[in-house]
Amino acid sequence: MTDAAHAAQKVERSDALDHVARAGLVAYGVVHLLIAFIAGRLALGDRSGSADSTGALKELAAQPFGSVLVWAVAVGLLMLVLWRVVELVGGDGALDRVKSAGRAVVYAVLSYSAIRVALSGGGGGGGGNTEETMTARLLALPVGRWIVAAVGVGILVFAVVLVWRGISRKHAKELATEGRTGSAGRAYVALGAVGHVAKGVAFGVVGGLVVHAGLTHDADSSGGLDQALLEVLQQPFGPVLLLAVAVGIGCFAAFCFARARHLSR
């Protein structure tokens, strides 16, 4: 074992990292709670706001002391990045390292979005749909359509994993023992199950849109979470389905808060 890995394992077992992880999970939960709120509002007919992480952060920035709150979320998400980096360096298995690296990237992207929103005072970060712009750039490459389709498949795999974690209740391992016993513990696990499935469904639609964009060479048909939820809204019984997804994502937020309280690393 290298000195860096040994030092990382010492940090990983420290109480200080527990506090870092708990603060980060609260920030992560806040982002999902805001997405759930905007998605629910969208289901009820209010199309103001974007039901993705950036839109959620802009919604937060528009509140009293919003900039301070967004900065707090950004710092919390950076703490999640730190937590996963420590796991990455100190991890024993290759699979665990890959998982930690992937999660660190996700949290870093969210933190970057929060910092941009905070610096802009909650205003727009430029025109155009970011996902469509990125897709268009990839499609311009010689094998771009296949790259885009592969990214879409990757998102679909991620969605399936989320649904599987919810159905199999693997997420229960992320709660300390005292958080898994009794009626409260069962409620926490149930919230996580519903939340993981709902989030998986939402990202499944995102992945499908990206795959379709690659196969049809049409960047306009791609999109992020906001576009995916609008796609759900356009289906038969769309408002009801979208409201169910919004409630599910809210459950995921509640699970994040429960996990912050009963953290098992």
Rank of each mutant, 00 (worst) to 15 (best):
residue 1 M to C: 06
residue 2 T to K: 05
residue 9 Q to C: 00
residue 12 E to T: 07
residue 13 R to A: 14
residue 16 A to Y: 09
residue 22 R to F: 07
residue 25 L to R: 12
residue 26 V to N: 06
residue 27 A to I: 03
residue 28 Y to G: 01
residue 30 V to G: 03
residue 32 H to Q: 02
residue 33 L to G: 08
residue 33 L to H: 01
residue 46 D to S: 07
residue 50 S to T: 15
residue 51 A to Y: 07
residue 55 G to P: 10
residue 59 E to Q: 14
residue 60 L to E: 02
residue 63 Q to V: 04
residue 69 L to M: 14
residue 70 V to C: 00
residue 70 V to D: 03
residue 71 W to S: 10
residue 73 V to C: 12
residue 73 V to A: 08
residue 76 G to R: 06
residue 81 V to A: 11
residue 84 R to F: 08
residue 85 V to E: 02
residue 93 G to K: 10
residue 98 V to M: 11
residue 103 R to D: 08
residue 106 V to P: 00
residue 110 L to N: 04
residue 112 Y to F: 13
residue 113 S to A: 12
residue 117 V to N: 13
residue 117 V to R: 13
residue 121 G to M: 10
residue 122 G to T: 06
residue 124 G to D: 12
residue 125 G to D: 14
residue 127 G to W: 09
residue 130 T to M: 14
residue 131 E to Y: 10
residue 132 E to N: 10
residue 135 T to G: 07
residue 142 P to S: 06
residue 143 V to Q: 13
residue 147 I to T: 11
residue 163 V to E: 04
residue 169 R to T: 09
residue 178 E to K: 13
residue 178 E to S: 05
residue 181 T to C: 10
residue 182 G to R: 13
residue 185 G to I: 04
residue 187 A to W: 10
residue 192 G to W: 02
residue 196 H to P: 02
residue 202 A to Q: 08
residue 210 V to R: 10
residue 213 A to T: 02
residue 214 G to R: 09
residue 216 T to D: 02
residue 218 D to C: 04
residue 219 A to S: 12
residue 226 D to T: 01
residue 230 L to I: 06
residue 235 Q to R: 07
residue 236 P to C: 02
residue 236 P to V: 05
residue 243 L to K: 06
residue 246 A to P: 01
residue 247 V to I: 14
residue 251 C to E: 11
residue 258 A to E: 01
residue 261 R to Y: 15
residue 263 L to E: 05
residue 264 S to G: 07
